[in-house]
């Protein structure tokens, strides 16, 4: 057990050389490689973190968009529902008004139809009364209805009160046009002469006459001068009769029994 100092020195030098060589060929390359790998991993990690952050950001943005979209969808749905409700109310209101209009129209048509039916029945009744009366008068008294009508009309003219006469006279004197005489039947010359005489007596002078036939009068006569009319007909008689029969107590007034004096000032 001795020390060889040459070996000691040689071994020390060997060791120092080995340190240098190992540093050159082992430690430095290995540590550099490890450092580079760490840097690479660090870079990849930071990149991954950045990508993760980006992904998170995009996820947040997407979620926000989804949220906004949902809100927008809800708002649009609410608006659509409101519009539908409003439209529904409007349509219902329009339909209701239309239905009411149709109802009113239907009621009006029904009233018109009822009125027409009543008129028709009244007309037929008048015709029937007229024909029955005519036949009865012809058979029993050998007197024509037309003659009796003219006689009743002239009789009425004679017995007009001064209050009733005066408007007719005033109307004639304000405009001396020919007096228009309408009848349901063709007046004979004798009947025309009777009417002329009665009117001349009424006015105090002899006016011109125009004789016309109107089937609607139904065995009646009316006399018009400058918008003033004196009339008597079975129709008026029947109307008065109808009114008297439909009144609760069934009483009749003398003026309503077939004689009317109509003032129709234009």
């Amino acid at each position: 057990m001795h020390i060889n100092w040459f070996t000691v020195i040689a071994q020390a030098l060997n060791f120092i050389l080995l340190v240098w060589l190992m540093k050159r060929f082992l430690y430095t390359p290995i540590l550099d490689a490890i450092d580079q790998r760490e840097q690479k991993i660090k870079a990849e990690l930071s990149e991954a973190n950045a990508q993760k952050a980006d992904a998170q950001k995009e996820k947040d943005a997407f979620q926000q968009k989804n949220k906004d979209f949902d809100q927008q969808k809800k708002a649009l749905m609410d608006m659509a529902v409101d519009q539908v409700q409003t439209e529904r109310r409007t349509l219902l209101e329009a339909a209701r008004q239309e239905a009411e209009g149709l109802q009113v129209k239907q009621q009006k048509l029904m009233k018109e139809a009822q009125h027409n039916l009543q008129n028709d029945i009244a007309g037929k009744a008048r015709q029937a009364v007229f024909s029955i009366t005519k036949k009865a008068l012809a058979n029993l008294a050998s007197v024509g209805l037309e003659d009796q009508t003219v006689a009743v009309f002239t009789e009425r003219l004679h017995h007009l009160s001064p209050v009733e006469k005066q408007p007719f006279i005033d109307a004639f004197q304000s405009d001396k046009k020919p007096i228009e005489v309408q009848s349901a039947f063709e007046l004979t010359v004798k009947q025309q002469a009777a009417i002329k005489t009665a009117v001349t007596n009424l006015l105090g002078l002899e006016p011109d006459f125009v004789f016309k036939t109107n089937a609607d009068l139904i065995s009646g006569i009316d006399l018009q001068s400058n918008g003033f009319k004196l009339a008597w007909s079975v129709s008026d008689y029947l109307t008065a009769l109808e009114k008297s029969s439909s009144s609760p107590n069934g009483t009749t007034k003398s003026k309503e029994k077939g004689e009317t004096i109509q003032h129709a000032v234009n």
């Binding site: 071994q11 060997n14 080995l18 060589l21 060929f25 082992l26 490689a33």
Partner: peptide, 27 residues
Amino acid sequence: TLVTTWGIMLFMVVGSALITRNLKTGL
């Protein structure tokens, strides 16, 4: 002693040089 030391040195240096010749920095 010296000869063995040189042998060991040669083994260590050559081995390290051979292995670290193609170092990779990947995974």
